[in-house]
Design a protein around this nucleic acid. Sequence first.
DNA 1: TCAAAAGTGTTATCCTTACACCCATGT
DNA 2: ACATGGGTGTAAGGATAACACTTTTGA
Lengths: 333, 333
Amino acid sequence: MRPQSGTPVVIGLSAVVVGMREGEAAVLTVKPHDDNGKVSALAGLPFGPFDPAQDRTFELALRAFVAEQTGFELGWVEQLYTFGDQGRDAPLADVGAGAARVVSVGYLALTPRAEGADTPDTAWMPWVRAFPWEDWRRGRPAAIDAVIAPGLKRWADEAGRGAAEARLQRARQLFALDGAPWKEERVLDRYELLYEAGLAPEAARDRALAEGRAAPEPARFDPALGEPMISDHRRILATGLGRLRAKLQYRPVAFELTPPEFTLSALQKLVEAISGVPLHKQNFRRALERTGLVEPLGRLEPDTGGRPAELYRYARERAAAGPPQGLNLPVLR
Amino acid sequence: MRPQSGTPVVIGLSAVVVGMREGEAAVLTVKPHDDNGKVSALAGLPFGPFDPAQDRTFELALRAFVAEQTGFELGWVEQLYTFGDQGRDAPLADVGAGAARVVSVGYLALTPRAEGADTPDTAWMPWVRAFPWEDWRRGRPAAIDAVIAPGLKRWADEAGRGAAEARLQRARQLFALDGAPWKEERVLDRYELLYEAGLAPEAARDRALAEGRAAPEPARFDPALGEPMISDHRRILATGLGRLRAKLQYRPVAFELTPPEFTLSALQKLVEAISGVPLHKQNFRRALERTGLVEPLGRLEPDTGGRPAELYRYARERAAAGPPQGLNLPVLR
DNA sequence: TCAAAAGTGTTATCCTTACACCCATGT
DNA sequence: ACATGGGTGTAAGGATAACACTTTTGA
């Protein structure tokens, strides 16, 4: 196997680190600065280079640079996806003399300890800030019908004949328009649709860069369309959240985000924060019980504001044994 | 982002191409030959380099070189995993002067047309040949208890105290020993276990290479332990099949493997060939019916050997609409 | 007429969904 | 006593798993 050309490849690693923070699901972000110390206005995911001469595996390299960059030790980690397409502002990097192609390998990491103060360079961002339309916990977000649907409609109308209907169809399916069901795990497809439709500010930026124009002033937080991120990081984040939401349904990943002891309400809040949909209390508990993955400790948590709640722990030993696993989501209403 | 060293990275692409062939699920393999035309004794997956200067996306590069190498046009394609660990015989490649680190991006591809004659260089291999223990269609494979379980037992006994029990536990869960349930989608974990336990010939080879010894004569097909492949290709294959089996249960991927018209029995045979478990006829049909993904054509297929069967087609339009999707597997017995 | 495969009916059981109500604490 | 969450009971409907039987062809 020989490379056909002199263009070198650089492999970058990025991490979607998810944890609970003050009852909200949050991701670890960094404010990148260039070599002159100028700090970017937009946040990014922790990312770093993979050194082919030194790093034995991607995962070890990832753990090392996240610890170095953010002071954070990762627990549960899994590979997400490898991004190599041109034109999504995963652009050229300088390497000695000349430009290199950057390929970035994204990872998803979960941690039960998302505490610790934010520093000037790192912060935990409630991920709903990046994707406000993904939060259905208090019902269908108004912005979907007020802003997103009209925007997509406009975009569909720009297309010729057959294409317009196909675009509308996609919009309907993904954003649950006209009574289509909401599929919470399709986070990436929704983001991609908004990107294609030009509703994500990253799209305009990438187009400008591709055409050699100056990138427009980065847009800031928009309550309907969310907060953009540097490079293709919001896309990687969407990939991670989609994967996490899907995984919730067939693997006991929720427990990678809990402290060692927790109440069932806290667990439910957690699953709701990740999946973005409200759950039916009793059915959630019954489903949990059926899995046998959780064990009451016989002790109470008094700080609930009402009746004290029983504390539970995750019975990890039983996770491997039982036939099925993973929670399912008895959606409320 | 700057590379820390002078070691270059080369990106390779590999494809797990799955199709039905004479009623069996098969993967497309190539017999690699070196520059002198000497052909390897072992089969490999189609693989090729990614050219950072020419190729816009991984997927386009993949389609191009698979077509070139095997004459095959791919249909449905999805990225599997990116393999970059050292020591799994994804070893160094020659690049001009000096060695490069090879990172390989694996893809899964499905095709309804696995016909066409084998050539000297390419062949469709029934994938059960690589993983005989994965075929439970005619009941629990005898080799599991006769060969694999004792082998794993020996391996566990080599470990000290606590470790031995952990190894046994893993073996029990993955290979359904002592009444543990069989989880058909854990193809990769099972292969990895066999590799760690030294029951896959690839392990001895990789150890020899890592220690600078000559690689042992490649072992050939073993009816219990399967047929090894070059490099880490059997691992990539296991990743692909595990993914495919899992996906069967929540996405309508089975139809990417069918011809445009098919009988329900043929579809059932197909799902059984992929998942490796026997299915309950009527419950399979009922489940299918519920999804509404399939439409009778009102015509019959006479060549069944018994009563003619009704022909169906996949109603792709309906796939996007309906709430759930994917078949589930009503396992027989 | 018989083998071979296609195709159906029926039931018990379990899971899911949904409704409504009771319990224990702090103020 | 009442507000605030924690924590049940129960019943309808639907999905699953398992049973065995009928139908239609070719040899």
